[in-house]
Design a protein around this nucleic acid. Structure first.
Length: 451
DNA sequence: GTTGAGCGTT
């Protein structure tokens, strides 16, 4: 995450403090590329923190040595955490750093770049000319609001080679005649159901509808915050909340085996998304699931879209493999891959639920997963396995994994089973989840279309 | 009031 190098988090700022003020203030420590004061999206009210990006990472050291009072408040300046780091640290496991290494981002090769922070006055011509210095530009788009026709502040540049893209991405900020714009790899919009990452966010779509609970999630899937369990719905354990699950399912198209492409999910929550997918991966088609993943991942880090960290990689096949082995051991594939948490949990869980392991020990332990594993192992169709609630719910559903994927139709149960590790809980709740079935189904349809 | 926006068109 080079882009995070010169980034400072400023907490506890006054509601009066503006971006300009931050820029002025921190300008004494170095060249400030960008400042932002985060606000509530709806109310517009400042949330009390912001970020400052210096062109020179060394400026951070200077800033960190002093106390800062801005607009009468003593603010707290810290090096900004990348999303991955956030998760990790929040989970209380600082040591696990980002594992991915090179892999990140590599998978989602798009020759298109998302350019944010465009000045309203920028013309496509100027836009193109600037980027032409990096390679052959095949397409230029500046987005406008369809209703008001006003510039939305972002656009896209397509190149004919990945090299050009790499060159552009080498720097996060680009100066278009004195204006700062930010570049990131574009999300593959049309990649599959999940591909668009964002679209899912809304999530809601199929998903939402299918299960009433889903919203708990927050519309934005990519928000890693959710991990903090804001969504705890009622009595459910954080994860339990259907919202989440649903997600996973929705996408998975099972029939083909392809399914899993998760775009958003994968990305969105490392924990959930990815894993889920994996977990479910169609038994029959081990790999299938993962494909999409990476894309989603990207969305996570806003600074670094590339991080496919979660992306499937880890999950990749691993889940399956691992799954049965309940004892499996951390080593098993998935875990190794990304696990921010590194937690052994993964290993055991077969599913590789990163999220789970990490955040909540509980999950880690859950036999539940393990159990699922069992299921996984079992043949898809074998319904019985789930045993717990799930089974009850649907006849078909049986296997969590299996069935689910196998046929969309059958499954509502699936989710449930999986999620809830604790049998006791399973039953009642699940009922609610029927939603999944729906979501899922939808997904498949979608796929069908694509074919 | 303390960790994150924005992702399309044809």
């Amino acid at each position: 995450m080079d882009s995070d190098q010169g980034k400072l988090f400023i907490g506890g700022i006054s509601w009066e403090t503006s971006e300009e003020k931050l820029k002025d203030y921190f300008g004494q420590y170095g060249d400030v590329l960008q400042t932002v004061v985060m606000r509530d999206k709806i109310s517009g009210k400042p949330r009390g923190f912001g970020f400052v990006v210096f062109s020179d990472p060394d400026a951070l050291d200077r800033v960190l040595q002093h106390r800062h009072v801005i607009d009468g408040r003593t603010v707290e300046a810290k090096r900004a955490l990348s999303r991955e780091e956030q998760q990790v640290s929040r989970a209380g496991n600082p040591s696990a750093g980002r594992s991915f290494g090179g892999g990140g981002g590599g998978n989602t090769r798009t020759k298109k770049i998302f350019v944010g922070g465009l000045p309203a006055t920028l013309t496509e011509d100027a836009f193109r000319q600037y980027f032409e210095s990096y390679g052959n530009v095949t397409d230029v788009v500046i987005m406008f609001d369809q209703q008001t026709n006003r510039p939305r502040g972002f656009g896209f540049i397509s190149f004919d080679s990945e090299d050009a893209v790499d060159r552009v991405l080498h720097k996060t900020f680009h100066d278009l005649n004195g204006k700062q714009v930010e570049v990131k790899r574009a999300l593959p919009k049309d990649a599959n159901p999940g591909g668009g990452g964002r679209s899912m966010g809304g999530g809601a779509g199929g998903y939402g509808s299918s299960s009433g609970n889903s919203n708990s999630y927050e519309s934005r899937m990519d928000s890693s915050r959710y991990i903090q369990s804001q969504n705890t719905g009622g009595g459910f354990p954080p994860y339990g909340s259907s919202g989440y699950n649903a997600a996973g399912y929705a996408y998975g198209p099972t029939n083909n085996g392809m399914g899993y492409s998760y775009g958003s999910y994968g990305g969105a929550n490392p924990g959930y998304g990815g894993p889920a997918a994996a977990a479910y991966g169609n038994p029959n088609v081990p790999n299938a699931g993962y494909g999409g993943g990476p894309a989603g991942a990207s969305r996570n880090a806003w600074t670094a879209q590339g991080s496919s960290a979660y992306g499937n990689v880890g999950y990749g096949s691993a889940p399956w493999g691992a799954s049965n082995a309940s004892g499996g051991g951390p080593g098993s594939g998935a875990a190794a891959g990304h696990s921010p948490s590194g937690s052994a949990g993964y290993g055991n869980q077969s599913y590789g639920f990163a999220g789970y392991g990490t955040n909540d020990g509980a999950y880690g332990n859950q036999g539940a997963y393990g159990a699922p594993g069992g299921r996984a192992g079992s043949i898809p169709n074998s319904n019985a396995s789930v045993g717990n609630g799930a089974g009850d719910l649907q006849a078909g559903a049986g296997g969590y994994m299996g069935s689910g994927y196998g046929d969309a139709a059958g499954n509502s149960g699936y989710v449930n089973a999986g999620w809830r590790s604790d049998p006791s809980q399973v039953s009642g709740n699940y009922g609610g989840q029927a939603g999944y079935g729906g979501g899922y189904g939808g997904a498949s349809t979608r796929q069908a279309q694509q074919q």
